[in-house]
Write a protein that binds this DNA or RNA. Structure first.
Lengths: 247, 247
DNA sequence: CAAATAGTGTCTCTAAGACATTATTAG
DNA sequence: CTAATAATGTCTTAGAGACACTATTTG
Protein backbone atom coordinates (compact mmCIF):
# COMPACT_ATOMS: atom_id res chain seq x y z
CA UNK A 1 0.00 0.00 0.00
CA UNK A 2 1.53 3.25 -1.07
CA UNK A 3 0.96 6.74 0.16
CA UNK A 4 -1.72 7.60 -2.38
CA UNK A 5 -3.73 4.49 -1.53
CA UNK A 6 -3.32 5.53 2.00
CA UNK A 7 -4.65 9.01 1.57
CA UNK A 8 -7.49 7.73 -0.54
CA UNK A 9 -8.49 5.53 2.36
CA UNK A 10 -8.52 8.54 4.59
CA UNK A 11 -10.60 10.68 2.26
CA UNK A 12 -14.21 9.97 3.15
CA UNK A 13 -15.48 11.74 0.06
CA UNK A 14 -13.84 9.05 -2.05
CA UNK A 15 -16.42 6.66 -0.68
CA UNK A 16 -19.97 6.97 0.44
CA UNK A 17 -20.34 10.15 2.50
CA UNK A 18 -20.74 9.38 6.16
CA UNK A 19 -22.07 11.52 8.96
CA UNK A 20 -21.54 10.99 12.67
CA UNK A 21 -24.15 12.13 15.16
CA UNK A 22 -24.35 12.03 18.94
CA UNK A 23 -27.83 11.25 20.23
CA UNK A 24 -28.91 11.20 23.86
CA UNK A 25 -31.26 9.00 25.84
CA UNK A 26 -31.87 11.40 28.73
CA UNK A 27 -33.78 9.93 31.64
CA UNK A 28 -35.23 11.59 34.69
CA UNK A 29 -37.97 10.89 37.18
CA UNK A 30 -40.99 13.16 37.34
CA UNK A 31 -44.15 12.57 39.34
CA UNK A 32 -42.94 9.12 40.26
CA UNK A 33 -42.60 8.03 36.66
CA UNK A 34 -39.59 7.58 34.41
CA UNK A 35 -39.42 10.17 31.63
CA UNK A 36 -37.29 10.41 28.51
CA UNK A 37 -36.46 13.60 26.64
CA UNK A 38 -37.91 13.54 23.12
CA UNK A 39 -38.10 16.07 20.34
CA UNK A 40 -40.65 16.32 17.60
CA UNK A 41 -38.98 16.35 14.21
CA UNK A 42 -39.57 19.55 12.25
CA UNK A 43 -38.17 18.26 8.96
CA UNK A 44 -38.39 15.12 6.88
CA UNK A 45 -37.74 12.31 7.06
CA UNK A 46 -40.13 11.25 9.80
CA UNK A 47 -41.40 14.82 10.01
CA UNK A 48 -43.71 15.21 12.97
CA UNK A 49 -42.53 12.04 14.66
CA UNK A 50 -40.84 11.99 18.04
CA UNK A 51 -37.14 11.24 18.17
CA UNK A 52 -34.19 11.32 20.52
CA UNK A 53 -32.35 14.63 20.70
CA UNK A 54 -29.07 14.60 18.84
CA UNK A 55 -26.87 16.42 16.45
CA UNK A 56 -23.82 16.20 14.30
CA UNK A 57 -20.43 15.72 15.82
CA UNK A 58 -18.23 18.60 14.74
CA UNK A 59 -14.79 19.36 16.07
CA UNK A 60 -15.52 18.27 19.63
CA UNK A 61 -15.29 15.01 21.46
CA UNK A 62 -18.20 12.60 21.14
CA UNK A 63 -19.23 13.03 24.75
CA UNK A 64 -18.96 16.81 24.51
CA UNK A 65 -21.19 16.74 21.46
CA UNK A 66 -23.78 14.76 23.43
CA UNK A 67 -23.52 17.16 26.36
CA UNK A 68 -23.92 20.13 24.06
CA UNK A 69 -27.00 18.60 22.49
CA UNK A 70 -28.49 17.86 25.89
CA UNK A 71 -27.81 21.41 27.05
CA UNK A 72 -29.39 22.84 23.93
CA UNK A 73 -32.61 20.92 24.31
CA UNK A 74 -33.00 21.27 28.03
CA UNK A 75 -31.62 24.74 28.59
CA UNK A 76 -29.14 23.36 31.12
CA UNK A 77 -26.12 25.51 31.86
CA UNK A 78 -22.63 23.99 31.77
CA UNK A 79 -22.66 24.20 35.55
CA UNK A 80 -25.78 22.05 35.76
CA UNK A 81 -24.33 19.56 33.31
CA UNK A 82 -21.66 18.65 35.86
CA UNK A 83 -24.39 17.10 37.93
CA UNK A 84 -25.72 14.94 35.09
CA UNK A 85 -24.37 11.45 34.63
CA UNK A 86 -23.49 10.93 30.97
CA UNK A 87 -22.10 7.71 29.56
CA UNK A 88 -21.70 6.15 26.16
CA UNK A 89 -24.41 3.65 25.34
CA UNK A 90 -23.57 2.23 21.94
CA UNK A 91 -23.17 3.04 18.28
CA UNK A 92 -25.77 2.46 15.61
CA UNK A 93 -24.68 2.43 12.00
CA UNK A 94 -26.79 0.00 10.02
CA UNK A 95 -26.99 1.12 6.39
CA UNK A 96 -30.40 2.53 5.61
CA UNK A 97 -31.28 3.57 9.14
CA UNK A 98 -31.44 7.11 7.80
CA UNK A 99 -33.00 7.20 4.33
CA UNK A 100 -30.94 10.19 3.17
CA UNK A 101 -27.39 8.99 3.70
CA UNK A 102 -25.16 6.86 5.81
CA UNK A 103 -25.38 8.11 9.39
CA UNK A 104 -23.46 6.58 12.25
CA UNK A 105 -24.98 7.52 15.59
CA UNK A 106 -23.10 7.32 18.85
CA UNK A 107 -25.79 7.09 21.51
CA UNK A 108 -25.30 8.39 25.05
CA UNK A 109 -27.26 7.77 28.19
CA UNK A 110 -27.95 10.62 30.62
CA UNK A 111 -29.40 10.48 34.12
CA UNK A 112 -30.44 13.48 36.15
CA UNK A 113 -32.33 14.15 39.34
CA UNK A 114 -34.08 17.14 37.95
CA UNK A 115 -34.02 18.88 34.61
CA UNK A 116 -35.72 22.07 33.56
CA UNK A 117 -38.58 21.97 31.12
CA UNK A 118 -37.14 21.64 27.65
CA UNK A 119 -37.12 24.37 25.09
CA UNK A 120 -37.23 23.66 21.40
CA UNK A 121 -33.80 23.53 19.82
CA UNK A 122 -32.84 24.47 16.30
CA UNK A 123 -33.85 21.18 14.73
CA UNK A 124 -37.07 20.49 16.53
CA UNK A 125 -40.37 22.20 16.74
CA UNK A 126 -40.98 20.80 20.21
CA UNK A 127 -39.17 18.99 22.98
CA UNK A 128 -40.77 17.31 25.96
CA UNK A 129 -40.13 15.02 28.89
CA UNK A 130 -42.30 12.07 27.98
CA UNK A 131 -43.40 9.34 30.38
CA UNK A 132 -42.10 6.03 29.14
CA UNK A 133 -45.54 4.54 29.33
CA UNK A 134 -46.68 7.10 26.77
CA UNK A 135 -43.94 6.79 24.17
CA UNK A 136 -45.19 6.12 20.68
CA UNK A 137 -43.13 4.80 17.83
CA UNK A 138 -39.97 6.84 17.40
CA UNK A 139 -38.22 8.02 14.26
CA UNK A 140 -35.36 6.06 12.68
CA UNK A 141 -34.17 3.25 14.98
CA UNK A 142 -34.54 5.42 18.04
CA UNK A 143 -36.98 2.98 19.56
CA UNK A 144 -34.21 0.37 19.64
CA UNK A 145 -31.76 2.87 21.09
CA UNK A 146 -34.23 3.81 23.80
CA UNK A 147 -34.79 0.15 24.65
CA UNK A 148 -31.04 -0.41 24.92
CA UNK A 149 -30.75 2.67 27.13
CA UNK A 150 -33.47 1.46 29.46
CA UNK A 151 -31.88 -1.96 29.80
CA UNK A 152 -28.54 -0.32 30.53
CA UNK A 153 -30.14 1.86 33.18
CA UNK A 154 -31.86 -1.08 34.84
CA UNK A 155 -28.64 -3.02 34.83
CA UNK A 156 -26.48 -0.20 36.15
CA UNK A 157 -28.76 0.30 39.15
CA UNK A 158 -27.78 -3.19 40.18
CA UNK A 159 -24.06 -2.78 40.58
CA UNK A 160 -23.35 0.95 40.67
CA UNK A 161 -24.59 3.79 42.89
CA UNK A 162 -26.21 5.37 39.83
CA UNK A 163 -29.60 5.61 41.50
CA UNK A 164 -28.22 8.51 43.54
CA UNK A 165 -28.01 10.48 40.26
CA UNK A 166 -31.80 10.47 40.11
CA UNK A 167 -32.35 12.06 43.51
CA UNK A 168 -31.25 15.29 45.11
CA UNK A 169 -28.08 15.86 47.10
CA UNK A 170 -29.78 14.70 50.27
CA UNK A 171 -32.34 11.95 50.08
CA UNK A 172 -34.17 9.38 52.15
CA UNK A 173 -33.93 5.64 51.71
CA UNK A 174 -37.54 5.67 50.55
CA UNK A 175 -36.74 8.14 47.81
CA UNK A 176 -33.89 5.91 46.70
CA UNK A 177 -36.17 2.93 46.75
CA UNK A 178 -38.66 4.79 44.58
CA UNK A 179 -35.93 5.22 41.97
CA UNK A 180 -35.31 1.49 41.86
CA UNK A 181 -39.02 0.72 41.73
CA UNK A 182 -39.66 3.15 38.91
CA UNK A 183 -36.69 2.07 36.78
CA UNK A 184 -37.12 -1.64 37.41
CA UNK A 185 -40.88 -1.37 37.16
CA UNK A 186 -41.65 -3.50 40.19
CA UNK A 187 -42.27 -2.94 43.89
CA UNK A 188 -39.51 -3.73 46.37
CA UNK A 189 -39.76 -4.77 49.98
CA UNK A 190 -39.27 -1.55 52.01
CA UNK A 191 -37.69 -3.15 55.06
CA UNK A 192 -35.28 -5.40 53.20
CA UNK A 193 -34.32 -2.63 50.80
CA UNK A 194 -33.59 -0.30 53.69
CA UNK A 195 -31.31 -2.74 55.45
CA UNK A 196 -29.62 -3.76 52.23
CA UNK A 197 -28.75 -0.20 51.16
CA UNK A 198 -27.23 0.58 54.54
CA UNK A 199 -25.23 -2.66 54.46
CA UNK A 200 -23.46 -1.90 51.18
CA UNK A 201 -20.21 -0.10 52.07
CA UNK A 202 -19.95 3.38 50.57
CA UNK A 203 -23.35 3.43 48.91
CA UNK A 204 -24.85 6.13 51.13
CA UNK A 205 -23.60 8.22 54.01
CA UNK A 206 -25.77 9.59 56.80
CA UNK A 207 -26.07 13.35 57.10
CA UNK A 208 -27.25 13.13 60.69
CA UNK A 209 -30.41 15.06 59.89
CA UNK A 210 -33.95 14.06 59.08
CA UNK A 211 -36.75 15.37 56.93
CA UNK A 212 -38.74 18.27 58.36
CA UNK A 213 -41.97 16.38 58.18
CA UNK A 214 -43.12 12.79 57.97
CA UNK A 215 -44.72 11.39 54.86
CA UNK A 216 -47.82 13.02 53.34
CA UNK A 217 -50.01 10.26 54.72
CA UNK A 218 -48.27 9.75 58.03
CA UNK A 219 -45.17 8.05 59.29
CA UNK A 220 -42.10 9.24 61.16
CA UNK A 221 -39.50 11.63 59.78
CA UNK A 222 -36.92 9.86 57.64
CA UNK A 223 -33.17 10.17 58.06
CA UNK A 224 -31.34 11.91 55.25
CA UNK A 225 -28.37 10.48 53.37
CA UNK A 226 -25.80 11.64 50.86
CA UNK A 227 -24.12 9.68 48.07
CA UNK A 228 -21.18 7.68 49.42
CA UNK A 229 -17.78 7.11 47.85
CA UNK A 230 -18.39 3.67 46.36
CA UNK A 231 -18.04 3.33 42.59
CA UNK A 232 -19.34 -0.23 42.60
CA UNK A 233 -21.95 -1.77 44.87
CA UNK A 234 -20.70 -4.84 46.64
CA UNK A 235 -22.68 -6.89 47.16
CA UNK A 236 -24.88 -5.78 44.27
CA UNK A 237 -28.61 -5.09 44.47
CA UNK A 238 -29.90 -7.66 42.03
CA UNK A 239 -33.25 -7.36 40.32
CA UNK A 240 -35.80 -9.88 41.49
CA UNK A 241 -37.33 -12.34 39.04
CA UNK A 242 -35.57 -12.20 35.71
CA UNK A 243 -36.08 -15.89 35.00
CA UNK A 244 -37.27 -15.09 31.50
CA UNK A 245 -34.04 -13.30 30.57
CA UNK A 246 -31.72 -16.09 31.64
CA UNK A 247 -32.38 -18.61 28.86
CA UNK B 1 -34.47 25.37 9.70
CA UNK B 2 -35.10 25.13 6.00
CA UNK B 3 -34.25 22.43 3.53
CA UNK B 4 -30.91 23.92 2.49
CA UNK B 5 -29.73 24.17 6.10
CA UNK B 6 -30.84 20.64 6.43
CA UNK B 7 -28.87 19.32 3.52
CA UNK B 8 -25.85 21.28 4.60
CA UNK B 9 -26.00 19.49 7.92
CA UNK B 10 -26.04 16.20 6.12
CA UNK B 11 -23.11 16.97 3.89
CA UNK B 12 -20.01 15.89 5.78
CA UNK B 13 -17.70 17.66 3.36
CA UNK B 14 -19.17 20.96 4.50
CA UNK B 15 -17.45 20.39 7.82
CA UNK B 16 -14.31 18.66 8.91
CA UNK B 17 -13.98 15.39 7.01
CA UNK B 18 -14.71 12.43 9.21
CA UNK B 19 -13.81 8.79 8.77
CA UNK B 20 -15.37 5.83 10.56
CA UNK B 21 -13.35 2.71 11.21
CA UNK B 22 -14.16 -0.62 12.84
CA UNK B 23 -11.31 -2.00 14.93
CA UNK B 24 -11.24 -5.34 16.68
CA UNK B 25 -9.86 -6.51 20.00
CA UNK B 26 -9.65 -10.22 19.17
CA UNK B 27 -8.83 -12.46 22.11
CA UNK B 28 -7.95 -16.13 22.21
CA UNK B 29 -6.12 -18.47 24.52
CA UNK B 30 -2.91 -20.11 23.33
CA UNK B 31 -0.52 -22.14 25.45
CA UNK B 32 -2.45 -21.22 28.55
CA UNK B 33 -2.05 -17.51 28.02
CA UNK B 34 -4.40 -14.82 26.77
CA UNK B 35 -3.41 -13.48 23.34
CA UNK B 36 -4.59 -10.48 21.34
CA UNK B 37 -4.38 -10.10 17.59
CA UNK B 38 -2.09 -7.21 16.63
CA UNK B 39 -0.79 -5.90 13.34
CA UNK B 40 2.41 -4.03 12.72
CA UNK B 41 1.71 -0.78 10.92
CA UNK B 42 3.31 -0.56 7.51
CA UNK B 43 2.60 3.15 6.98
CA UNK B 44 2.86 6.34 8.98
CA UNK B 45 1.73 7.51 11.38
CA UNK B 46 3.12 5.17 14.00
CA UNK B 47 4.86 3.21 11.25
CA UNK B 48 6.36 0.04 12.65
CA UNK B 49 4.26 0.13 15.82
CA UNK B 50 1.78 -2.53 16.74
CA UNK B 51 -1.91 -1.72 16.52
CA UNK B 52 -5.32 -3.34 16.62
CA UNK B 53 -6.58 -4.64 13.29
CA UNK B 54 -9.21 -2.44 11.74
CA UNK B 55 -10.40 -0.77 8.63
CA UNK B 56 -12.79 1.73 7.21
CA UNK B 57 -16.48 1.16 7.35
CA UNK B 58 -17.81 1.18 3.81
CA UNK B 59 -21.29 0.27 2.77
CA UNK B 60 -21.72 -2.50 5.30
CA UNK B 61 -22.94 -2.65 8.85
CA UNK B 62 -20.47 -1.78 11.60
CA UNK B 63 -20.38 -5.34 12.91
CA UNK B 64 -19.95 -6.74 9.41
CA UNK B 65 -17.04 -4.39 8.87
CA UNK B 66 -15.42 -5.68 12.04
CA UNK B 67 -16.04 -9.29 11.02
CA UNK B 68 -14.57 -8.62 7.58
CA UNK B 69 -11.47 -7.08 9.12
CA UNK B 70 -11.07 -10.00 11.48
CA UNK B 71 -11.45 -12.48 8.64
CA UNK B 72 -8.90 -10.61 6.55
CA UNK B 73 -6.25 -10.64 9.22
CA UNK B 74 -6.79 -14.15 10.49
CA UNK B 75 -7.69 -15.95 7.27
CA UNK B 76 -10.91 -17.15 8.84
CA UNK B 77 -13.64 -18.26 6.48
CA UNK B 78 -17.18 -16.95 6.90
CA UNK B 79 -18.09 -20.38 8.21
CA UNK B 80 -15.53 -20.10 11.01
CA UNK B 81 -16.70 -16.62 11.84
CA UNK B 82 -20.04 -18.02 12.94
CA UNK B 83 -18.25 -19.62 15.84
CA UNK B 84 -16.59 -16.39 16.96
CA UNK B 85 -18.31 -14.21 19.51
CA UNK B 86 -18.28 -10.60 18.32
CA UNK B 87 -19.77 -7.70 20.25
CA UNK B 88 -19.52 -3.95 20.19
CA UNK B 89 -17.12 -2.57 22.77
CA UNK B 90 -17.27 1.20 22.47
CA UNK B 91 -16.58 4.13 20.21
CA UNK B 92 -13.50 6.32 20.34
CA UNK B 93 -13.60 9.68 18.68
CA UNK B 94 -11.48 12.17 20.59
CA UNK B 95 -10.15 14.83 18.22
CA UNK B 96 -6.47 14.33 17.57
CA UNK B 97 -6.39 10.60 18.26
CA UNK B 98 -5.30 10.20 14.64
CA UNK B 99 -2.88 12.96 13.61
CA UNK B 100 -4.07 13.00 10.00
CA UNK B 101 -7.78 13.64 10.32
CA UNK B 102 -10.81 13.11 12.45
CA UNK B 103 -11.33 9.37 12.81
CA UNK B 104 -14.17 7.84 14.80
CA UNK B 105 -13.42 4.23 15.66
CA UNK B 106 -16.09 1.75 16.64
CA UNK B 107 -14.26 -0.94 18.58
CA UNK B 108 -15.44 -4.54 18.70
CA UNK B 109 -14.50 -7.38 20.98
CA UNK B 110 -14.01 -10.88 19.59
CA UNK B 111 -13.56 -14.16 21.47
CA UNK B 112 -12.61 -17.43 19.89
CA UNK B 113 -11.52 -20.86 21.02
CA UNK B 114 -8.98 -21.23 18.31
CA UNK B 115 -7.90 -19.07 15.42
CA UNK B 116 -5.49 -19.83 12.63
CA UNK B 117 -2.15 -18.09 12.51
CA UNK B 118 -2.67 -14.66 11.07
CA UNK B 119 -1.60 -13.62 7.63
CA UNK B 120 -0.64 -10.08 6.83
CA UNK B 121 -3.51 -8.05 5.44
CA UNK B 122 -3.34 -5.21 3.00
CA UNK B 123 -2.51 -2.50 5.51
CA UNK B 124 -0.03 -4.31 7.69
CA UNK B 125 3.35 -5.82 7.12
CA UNK B 126 2.78 -8.35 9.87
CA UNK B 127 0.05 -9.70 12.08
CA UNK B 128 0.51 -11.85 15.14
CA UNK B 129 -1.23 -13.32 18.15
CA UNK B 130 0.59 -11.58 20.96
CA UNK B 131 0.56 -12.67 24.60
CA UNK B 132 -0.89 -9.89 26.71
CA UNK B 133 2.11 -9.99 28.98
CA UNK B 134 4.27 -9.06 26.00
CA UNK B 135 2.28 -6.17 24.55
CA UNK B 136 4.28 -2.99 24.12
CA UNK B 137 2.85 0.43 23.62
CA UNK B 138 0.27 0.43 20.84
CA UNK B 139 -0.39 2.98 18.11
CA UNK B 140 -3.01 5.71 18.49
CA UNK B 141 -5.20 5.12 21.57
CA UNK B 142 -5.30 1.39 20.94
CA UNK B 143 -3.76 0.73 24.32
CA UNK B 144 -6.84 2.28 25.96
CA UNK B 145 -9.15 0.31 23.69
CA UNK B 146 -7.35 -2.92 24.55
CA UNK B 147 -7.64 -2.15 28.26
CA UNK B 148 -11.36 -1.52 27.89
CA UNK B 149 -11.71 -4.77 25.98
CA UNK B 150 -9.92 -6.75 28.66
CA UNK B 151 -12.08 -5.30 31.39
CA UNK B 152 -15.19 -6.09 29.38
CA UNK B 153 -13.99 -9.66 28.90
CA UNK B 154 -13.27 -10.10 32.60
CA UNK B 155 -16.65 -8.72 33.49
CA UNK B 156 -18.60 -10.77 30.95
CA UNK B 157 -17.13 -14.00 32.28
CA UNK B 158 -18.88 -13.22 35.52
CA UNK B 159 -22.46 -13.12 34.37
CA UNK B 160 -22.56 -14.73 30.92
CA UNK B 161 -21.49 -18.15 29.61
CA UNK B 162 -18.91 -16.40 27.42
CA UNK B 163 -16.07 -18.55 28.71
CA UNK B 164 -17.45 -21.39 26.61
CA UNK B 165 -16.49 -19.34 23.53
CA UNK B 166 -12.83 -19.83 24.44
CA UNK B 167 -12.94 -23.61 24.51
CA UNK B 168 -13.89 -26.26 21.99
CA UNK B 169 -17.34 -27.75 21.43
CA UNK B 170 -16.72 -30.32 24.14
CA UNK B 171 -14.68 -29.38 27.15
CA UNK B 172 -13.89 -30.37 30.70
CA UNK B 173 -14.59 -28.30 33.78
CA UNK B 174 -10.84 -27.90 34.22
CA UNK B 175 -10.50 -26.42 30.75
CA UNK B 176 -13.29 -24.01 31.57
CA UNK B 177 -11.59 -23.11 34.83
CA UNK B 178 -8.36 -22.44 32.95
CA UNK B 179 -10.22 -19.84 30.86
CA UNK B 180 -11.37 -18.01 33.97
CA UNK B 181 -7.95 -18.18 35.54
CA UNK B 182 -6.20 -16.86 32.44
CA UNK B 183 -8.65 -14.02 31.80
CA UNK B 184 -9.00 -13.02 35.44
CA UNK B 185 -5.32 -13.54 36.08
CA UNK B 186 -5.72 -15.40 39.35
CA UNK B 187 -6.01 -19.02 40.45
CA UNK B 188 -9.40 -20.41 41.40
CA UNK B 189 -10.24 -23.18 43.80
CA UNK B 190 -10.73 -26.31 41.64
CA UNK B 191 -13.28 -28.03 43.84
CA UNK B 192 -15.45 -25.01 44.50
CA UNK B 193 -15.31 -23.94 40.85
CA UNK B 194 -16.39 -27.39 39.73
CA UNK B 195 -19.41 -27.50 42.00
CA UNK B 196 -20.33 -23.92 41.20
CA UNK B 197 -20.32 -24.38 37.43
CA UNK B 198 -22.53 -27.45 37.68
CA UNK B 199 -24.92 -25.64 40.00
CA UNK B 200 -25.63 -22.77 37.60
CA UNK B 201 -28.67 -23.82 35.53
CA UNK B 202 -27.96 -24.00 31.81
CA UNK B 203 -24.29 -23.09 31.97
CA UNK B 204 -23.01 -26.48 30.82
CA UNK B 205 -24.63 -29.74 29.78
CA UNK B 206 -23.06 -33.17 30.20
CA UNK B 207 -22.26 -35.13 27.06
CA UNK B 208 -22.12 -38.39 28.96
CA UNK B 209 -18.61 -39.06 27.74
CA UNK B 210 -15.17 -38.51 29.21
CA UNK B 211 -11.74 -37.65 27.90
CA UNK B 212 -9.77 -40.53 26.39
CA UNK B 213 -6.96 -40.11 28.83
CA UNK B 214 -6.37 -38.54 32.21
CA UNK B 215 -4.26 -35.44 32.64
CA UNK B 216 -0.63 -35.36 31.43
CA UNK B 217 0.60 -35.71 34.97
CA UNK B 218 -1.99 -38.14 36.24
CA UNK B 219 -5.52 -37.97 37.50
CA UNK B 220 -8.77 -39.63 36.40
CA UNK B 221 -10.47 -39.01 33.06
CA UNK B 222 -12.63 -35.89 33.15
CA UNK B 223 -16.26 -35.76 32.07
CA UNK B 224 -16.98 -33.74 28.96
CA UNK B 225 -19.55 -30.96 28.74
CA UNK B 226 -21.17 -28.81 26.08
CA UNK B 227 -22.34 -25.23 26.30
CA UNK B 228 -25.81 -25.06 27.86
CA UNK B 229 -28.73 -22.86 26.88
CA UNK B 230 -28.31 -20.14 29.50
CA UNK B 231 -27.73 -16.60 28.22
CA UNK B 232 -27.06 -15.25 31.70
CA UNK B 233 -25.42 -17.02 34.62
CA UNK B 234 -27.55 -17.02 37.70
CA UNK B 235 -26.13 -16.89 40.21
CA UNK B 236 -23.10 -15.20 38.66
CA UNK B 237 -19.50 -16.31 39.08
CA UNK B 238 -18.04 -13.24 40.74
CA UNK B 239 -14.36 -12.40 40.65
CA UNK B 240 -12.65 -12.72 44.00
CA UNK B 241 -10.96 -9.72 45.58
CA UNK B 242 -11.76 -6.56 43.70
CA UNK B 243 -11.71 -4.36 46.78
CA UNK B 244 -9.54 -1.82 44.99
CA UNK B 245 -12.11 -1.26 42.24
CA UNK B 246 -15.02 -0.60 44.52
CA UNK B 247 -14.10 2.87 45.79
C1' DC C 1 -58.32 8.11 66.91
C1' DA C 2 -56.70 5.16 62.35
C1' DA C 3 -53.56 4.68 58.71
C1' DA C 4 -49.16 5.06 56.89
C1' DT C 5 -44.35 4.83 57.09
C1' DA C 6 -39.28 4.45 59.06
C1' DG C 7 -36.50 1.47 60.90
C1' DT C 8 -35.21 -2.91 63.16
C1' DG C 9 -35.53 -7.90 64.57
C1' DT C 10 -35.94 -12.69 63.43
C1' DC C 11 -36.04 -16.72 60.79
C1' DT C 12 -35.12 -19.62 56.67
C1' DC C 13 -32.77 -20.84 52.71
C1' DT C 14 -29.22 -20.28 49.31
C1' DA C 15 -24.69 -19.60 48.09
C1' DA C 16 -19.63 -18.70 48.65
C1' DG C 17 -15.43 -20.24 50.27
C1' DA C 18 -12.16 -22.97 53.11
C1' DC C 19 -10.86 -27.45 53.64
C1' DA C 20 -10.99 -32.50 53.53
C1' DT C 21 -11.66 -36.88 51.21
C1' DT C 22 -12.03 -40.51 47.78
C1' DA C 23 -11.28 -42.48 43.38
C1' DT C 24 -8.73 -42.71 39.21
C1' DT C 25 -5.14 -42.03 36.22
C1' DA C 26 0.05 -41.14 34.30
C1' DG C 27 4.53 -42.10 34.67
C1' DC D 1 4.83 -47.23 43.78
C1' DT D 2 3.94 -41.62 43.94
C1' DA D 3 2.04 -37.49 42.32
C1' DA D 4 -1.59 -35.28 40.25
C1' DT D 5 -6.20 -34.43 39.39
C1' DA D 6 -11.60 -35.16 39.05
C1' DA D 7 -15.30 -35.06 41.70
C1' DT D 8 -17.75 -34.86 45.95
C1' DG D 9 -18.55 -33.95 51.03
C1' DT D 10 -18.57 -30.97 55.12
C1' DC D 11 -18.56 -26.89 57.68
C1' DT D 12 -18.83 -21.89 58.40
C1' DT D 13 -20.32 -17.52 57.27
C1' DA D 14 -22.61 -13.97 54.41
C1' DG D 15 -26.47 -12.53 52.22
C1' DA D 16 -31.38 -12.51 50.19
C1' DG D 17 -36.05 -12.54 51.17
C1' DA D 18 -40.33 -13.36 53.93
C1' DC D 19 -42.49 -11.72 57.81
C1' DA D 20 -43.25 -9.47 62.20
C1' DC D 21 -42.95 -5.64 65.15
C1' DT D 22 -42.24 -0.99 67.29
C1' DA D 23 -42.04 3.88 67.12
C1' DT D 24 -43.39 7.99 64.99
C1' DT D 25 -45.93 10.94 62.38
C1' DT D 26 -50.19 12.83 59.47
C1' DG D 27 -54.81 13.88 59.02
Amino acid sequence: MNESDFLRDYDPTAYEPMAVTADVVALTIRDGRLHVLLIRRAEPPHQGMWALPGGFVRGDDLKDAAARELAEETGLLPHDLDRVHLEQLGTYGKPGRDPRMRVVTVAFLAFAAWMPDPKAGSDAEAAAWTPLTATRELAFDHGDILEDGLERARSKLEYTPLATSFVGDEFTISELRAVYEVVWGEPLHPGNFHRKVLSVPGFVEATGTTTERGGPRGGPRARLYRKGDARLLHPALLRPSREDEIR
